[in-house]
Simulated scan of single mutants.
Amino acid sequence: MSIARQLIKKYKPQGQAGFLGAGHEARPVVSGPFIQTDPFIYLMDDILDKKDNIPVGGPHPHAGFETVSLLLQGSFGDEKHHMKEGDFEIMTAGSGIVHTETLEKKAKLRWLQLWLNLPKKDRWAAPRVQNMSFKHVPTSNEHGVKIHLYSGSLAGLTSPVQNYSPLIVANITINAGVTTVQQLPANYNTFLYVIEGSVKIGMGEKQLHKDEVGWLNLSEETSESDLKLTAGEAGVNFVLYAGKPTGDEIVSHGPFIADTAEEIQQLYQEYRRGKINHITTVPEERKIKW
């Protein structure tokens, strides 16, 4: 008998002032004890309405994890690296990179950036960046359910994105009143973040509304599980994240994730000495594009 997924926790993340200054609202979609959110460390919903041409942002380091970015609205970047609405990026910081996020002009953006744990054996993997443009995202549109699959496998789709931590990321739209049942590994920690509309989840039909985050029950079974979803009167659009827990303990400080406090100190020393290279210096074979 298949395991039924249920909504066991929900909340509405509160916006706070973002690091890009005026017009930047940052909503902490995922935060709290890593033992509960594993393999997800943080997820921020960044909403920006920049009304001037004063440059903001700049270079900063990362190490020990991956950033997983989905652009929901707008576009940014330069001719070397440009993202537009619906594009996706996984950047493996691994052993350490310097990353630059600079906005020099007026912009209206919304993007989700997840910090995803690297399993202990892959903590210091060589840096890598994977970019998928929206037109290459595996997509299905059947029976009132549209799925854009960015990572992993779902609903008969499989993304070409390579993962260290098994990860499903999907942007799902369900028409008003439509019910669908999707299969997910029962042992994947899973949450939904509603962008528009509302949805009833599981046999208990607990509701999740716009701007709310909902976490599902988690099993140790390795079999598939059923996730029943029924869209509300206005339909629903949400992003689904499901990942296999690493079971590791982590130490988090600033832009770094490590296994010990000593490793964090070493990373800061390496950064100050200029020993961490910029992501643009990654060999071409580790810059993967679709």
Results as ranks from 00 to 15, higher is better:
residue 113 Q to P: 11
residue 280 T to Y: 13
residue 80 K to N: 14
residue 144 G to L: 08
residue 258 A to T: 01
residue 233 E to M: 02
residue 37 T to R: 01
residue 269 Q to W: 09
residue 87 D to K: 06
residue 199 V to L: 02
residue 37 T to E: 04
residue 32 G to Q: 07
residue 198 S to Q: 04
residue 19 F to S: 15
residue 114 L to T: 06
residue 117 N to R: 10
residue 249 E to D: 13
residue 205 E to Y: 02
residue 202 G to C: 06
residue 274 G to L: 10
residue 119 P to H: 00
residue 16 Q to N: 03
residue 242 A to H: 05
residue 47 I to Y: 12
residue 51 K to H: 10
residue 197 G to Y: 04
residue 117 N to S: 15
residue 288 I to P: 07
residue 3 I to T: 06
residue 265 Q to I: 03
residue 39 P to N: 12
residue 279 I to R: 07
residue 28 P to C: 04
residue 57 G to E: 03
residue 29 V to G: 04
residue 279 I to D: 02
residue 208 L to M: 08
residue 264 I to N: 01
residue 95 S to T: 01
residue 252 S to L: 13
residue 121 K to I: 11
residue 288 I to Q: 09
residue 49 D to V: 13
residue 39 P to M: 05
residue 99 H to M: 06
residue 153 S to D: 12
residue 150 Y to H: 14
residue 288 I to C: 11
residue 111 W to N: 12
residue 181 V to I: 15
residue 123 R to L: 15
residue 105 K to M: 12
residue 112 L to E: 10
residue 19 F to Q: 14
residue 76 F to H: 10
residue 167 L to Q: 12
residue 133 S to C: 07
residue 240 L to R: 12
residue 202 G to E: 06
residue 181 V to Y: 03
residue 280 T to R: 13
residue 111 W to F: 15
residue 192 L to R: 04
residue 282 V to D: 06
residue 35 I to H: 10
residue 218 L to R: 11
residue 37 T to V: 02
residue 246 T to L: 00
residue 14 Q to D: 03
residue 108 K to N: 14
residue 148 H to S: 12
residue 43 L to G: 00
residue 149 L to C: 09
residue 100 T to C: 00
residue 166 P to F: 10
residue 272 R to K: 14
residue 252 S to D: 01
residue 120 K to R: 13
residue 96 G to K: 05
residue 275 K to N: 14
residue 88 F to K: 09
residue 237 N to V: 04
residue 147 I to G: 09
